[in-house]
Simulated assay, not measured.
Amino acid sequence: MLAKVFPIPLKDGMQAKAEEIVREFAPKGPGAEEGTLSFRVYRDPAKPDYLLFVEHFADQAAYDAHTGSPAYRDLIAGRFADLIAEFVEIDHELIVAL
């Protein structure tokens, strides 16, 4: 399993717009992808203009399919990318799960 974490600072005032795009993307992208095991996006109520993505994929091929999908290109690499202040991608390896 491949785990990805993306702490995403947004441009000032872009929280609502970013959340709208993520809600639109979820069923079209990860919700329709066989190799996407989980796709979760969190907001921090104490930190405006910030989202935390936590995603799990079956393997690297599943992640590559995810980032190569038309929905990803249009909504995440396209519209969402214009709203972020900085892109951070962190890979994680699972140690334990319950």
Rank of each mutant, 00 (worst) to 15 (best):
P9G: 07
F80L: 08
F87N: 02
T36D: 00
A62R: 11
A77Q: 05
R40Q: 07
F39W: 14
V54F: 15
P70V: 13
R73V: 15
E89W: 04
K17D: 09
R43S: 08
L98Q: 04
R23M: 11
E34G: 15
K28R: 12
G35Q: 10
L75W: 04
P70F: 02
H92A: 13
Y63Q: 08
A32E: 11
F25Q: 00
A85V: 04
P30Q: 00
V54K: 06
A62M: 08
P7L: 07
A16F: 00
T67E: 05
A71N: 09
L83T: 06
V96I: 09
M1P: 15
I95T: 13
M1G: 07
A85H: 01
F53H: 01
Y50V: 02
V5Q: 15
K11F: 00
I76N: 02
L51R: 00
A77Y: 03
H66V: 03
L75E: 02
A81I: 11
I90R: 08
S69I: 01
A71H: 15
G29D: 06
F57W: 08
A18V: 05
A77R: 09
A81K: 15
A18T: 09
F87A: 12
P30N: 10
D59A: 07
R73N: 14
D82S: 01
F80N: 00
I90C: 02
F39E: 01
D44E: 07
A26C: 07
M1S: 13
I21D: 02
E89L: 05
A16H: 12
I90K: 12
F25S: 00
Y72D: 02
S69H: 01
E20H: 15
T67K: 12
A81F: 13
A46P: 13
L2E: 11
A81C: 01
A18Y: 04
V88E: 07
G13Q: 10
R43C: 12
P45A: 10
A81P: 00
K28V: 03
K11E: 12
R23T: 08
E33M: 05
L83E: 15
L98W: 06
A71E: 06
G31S: 12
D91V: 13
Y42F: 09
A32N: 10
Y50E: 15
D44M: 05
H92T: 06
L2N: 04
E20Q: 14
S69V: 08
F53D: 06
E55S: 08
E89C: 09
V88Q: 05
R40I: 02
H66W: 03
L10E: 04
L52I: 14
D74Q: 15
I95R: 05
L10Q: 10
D82A: 14
A32G: 01
G13T: 03
E20D: 13
G13E: 07
E93S: 08
E20S: 08
A77I: 00
K28Y: 12
A46C: 11
M14S: 08
P27M: 03
G78K: 07
F6L: 06
R40L: 14
E19C: 03
P9N: 11
A18R: 04
F25H: 04
A71L: 11
I21R: 05
I84F: 09
L94I: 08
A26H: 01
H92C: 15
V96K: 13
H56K: 13
R40K: 07
P27I: 06
A62N: 11
K47V: 10
L83Q: 10
A97D: 03
F87H: 10
E20W: 04
A85M: 04
F39Q: 00
V5T: 01
P7V: 00
Y72H: 11
A3H: 05
Y50L: 01
